[in-house]
Nucleic acid binder design. Structure first.
Lengths: 133, 133
DNA sequence: CTCAGTGCAAACGATTTGCAGGGCC
DNA sequence: GGCCCTGCAAATCGTTTGCACTGAG
């Protein structure tokens, strides 16, 4: 879905990466995508995975998440939603609540930026980690 | 302001790092803090800067920001507020609007996490970069 | 004196990149 | 057949860490 799809080839690597990412809801890191994809394409290189994830994200076909932690994560679901991260195990899950449009209005009146977007990240403890507290 | 201040020494390095950070509102990276501090303590090591920034953040005396981009940023202002980042020049500024407490309530009912916190990051184009568009 | 803290340099982990060869269009 | 894309390995960048020494308490 985009403007510059001019000469972007549909290689099997690209295809498999996209398929695997759309298949899960775990917001994997590049390395985790690499592991998933390698089961089907054992000779794929990590560099290729990075290149394709970045490219797909640029096109808006997937989302690159900046949710803190050391590694970037990728999300095959591009519908608007927020995220929550478990501070214990670092797992990231979706939060499907209505986007708070009022936030951008408030922000606009408090600064001189042209506001383009916003994202909310919650942090908490997931149900797996709660008992261990 | 904390629980484990037992044997934390007040070294000049620590002191200067904190002073310099409190002095600015630019949310500097570790390297930028290093540059600021080096003017007063030319022999300080980058490792020391990292160690102290992390330590001060753990104590809650400063804030470590996870606002995307490659490097972590640090904020001497610990009062609750949000942030906006310019997608052109990567500058980060404060957004002082009321914290949207309703968000955490909505999120709580949509997932099984124990929610601890939330943060809103806006992205946009700052007034310096707007003309260049 | 003691031990937390330091400077320095080497180690590390995530990501990027240069290059030569390979395969989609 | 051109050139986008790949695999591979080396390079880069931010950050962390091991170690012997220093200085705050």
């Amino acid at each position: 879905m985009n403007e510059l799809d001019n000469n972007m080839r549909l290689t099997s690597q690209r295809q498999v990466i996209l398929e695997e990412l759309k298949k899960v809801k775990s917001h994997p890191t590049a390395n985790e995508v690499y592991d998933m994809v390698r089961k089907r394409l054992p000779r794929i290189g990590l560099g290729t995975v990075y290149r394709n994830l970045d490219l797909l994200a640029e096109k808006g076909i997937i989302n690159k998440l900046e949710v803190g932690g050391e590694q970037k994560r990728f999300d095959g679901d591009t519908s608007p939603h927020y995220h929550i991260r478990c501070v214990k195990c670092n797992q990231v899950e979706d939060i499907f609540i209505e986007r708070a449009k009022g936030l951008e209005k408030s922000a606009a009146s408090s600064c001189k930026y042209k506001i383009l977007d916003h994202h909310v990240q919650f942090s908490g403890i997931c149900c797996k980690c709660l008992p261990e507290t």
